[in-house]
Simulated assay, not measured.
Amino acid sequence: MSQHLSYTTEEIAQLLKISKLTVYDLIKKGELLSYRVGKQMRIDASDLDAYKQRSKARSAGQEAYAASAAASIVAHGTGTAPVLTGQDISLDMLASHLERRMPGLRPLRSHTGSLDSLISMYKGEADIVSTHLLDGDSGEYNIPYIRRLLIGMPYMVVNLLSRPAGLYVAKGNPHRLAGWPDLSRPGLRLANREVGSGARVLLDEQLRLNGIAPGSIAGYDSIHTSHISVASKVASGEADAGVGTARAASIVEQVDFIPLTQERYDLVILKNGRSKPWLNELLAILRSDEFRQELQSVSGYDLSLTGQVLYETP
């Protein structure tokens, strides 16, 4: 392979059999080196080869770790550590409480978006999934998606919290944005989230309900993998608006937050042999005063439904 050969992002997506958005995510995370020629991103063949070699080494390391963990479980007779997905700080609090309550059981955290988390659960790769997915037609959060994706699986849906979601705008709201229809304004620049995230689903559902074509919004394909990253793009002036939750706006300076909806943030928990050792303890934590008091320290959380089972299969 010539050292001068390079590829476009579309060609990389075809070679690796992944989506173009995933290629951009790899570039954003610094895992795949790139450079810009005019308006086009290019990746050298040598950098593609380096990425492949790192991925192979990482996969080999993960397989070795999994084998070691499995051997440890057999040797010590302990249950398998649950995989807990999602990005909100409340999940780190929950994992900490579970570890303290059951010494030796350390939950594994995966910062995966809501829709991808449910798919991971369906594939047997996650035990506790956090999700905040709006079904625009019914106005219901989460359960319509869960029922469609987890067909035939035993699970329960338990509320973790509710929180405001809406638009990030520059300090003082110079464009006077007040609602979802304002995203159709000509020239408005958006900082977007990745496909599969709750914020992306919220945006796409609101665009659909308001008859706004995604391709008409500048920056719709500008992908960022966290609320803070989106808010930072707005703060820096690289975007005029972004979708997310109030907490990131409280962290990032020069950003205001316009609340437009109250989203329900639920946990989906599989009911099987893997969850049996810790399921009751997890529910006890969610309903405990100690955990609720810790959640109350975070501004904007509504805990009126915390710990309630909202849906359960037989």
Score class of each variant (00 low, 15 high):
Thr8Leu: 08
Ala13Ser: 14
Gln14Ala: 13
Leu21Lys: 08
Leu32Lys: 04
Lys39Thr: 11
Asp47Leu: 03
Leu48Ser: 00
Leu48Thr: 04
Asp49Ala: 15
Lys52His: 05
Ser59Gln: 14
Ala75Trp: 06
Thr78Ser: 13
Thr80Met: 14
Asp88Leu: 08
Leu98Arg: 09
Arg109Trp: 01
Leu115Tyr: 14
Gly124Gln: 01
Ile128Pro: 13
His132Met: 09
Asp135His: 09
Ile143Ser: 06
Ile151Arg: 15
Tyr155Leu: 10
Asn159Arg: 15
Ser162Arg: 14
Arg163Tyr: 12
Gly172Gln: 04
His175Asp: 13
Ala178Trp: 00
Ala178Phe: 02
Gly179Glu: 08
Trp180Val: 03
Pro181Gly: 01
Arg185Ile: 03
Leu188Pro: 06
Glu205Leu: 08
Asn210Asp: 05
Gly215Ile: 04
Ser222His: 07
His224Ile: 06
Ile228Thr: 07
Ser232Met: 14
Ala235Trp: 01
Glu238Met: 12
Ala239Lys: 06
Thr245Ile: 14
Ala246Asp: 07
Ser250Leu: 14
Ile251Gln: 10
Val252Cys: 10
Arg264Lys: 12
Asp266Leu: 03
Ser275Gly: 04
Lys276Trp: 03
Pro277Ser: 11
Asn280Cys: 07
Arg287Pro: 01
Arg292Glu: 11
Gln296Ile: 02
Ser299Arg: 01
Ser299His: 10
Tyr301Ser: 00
Leu310Ser: 11
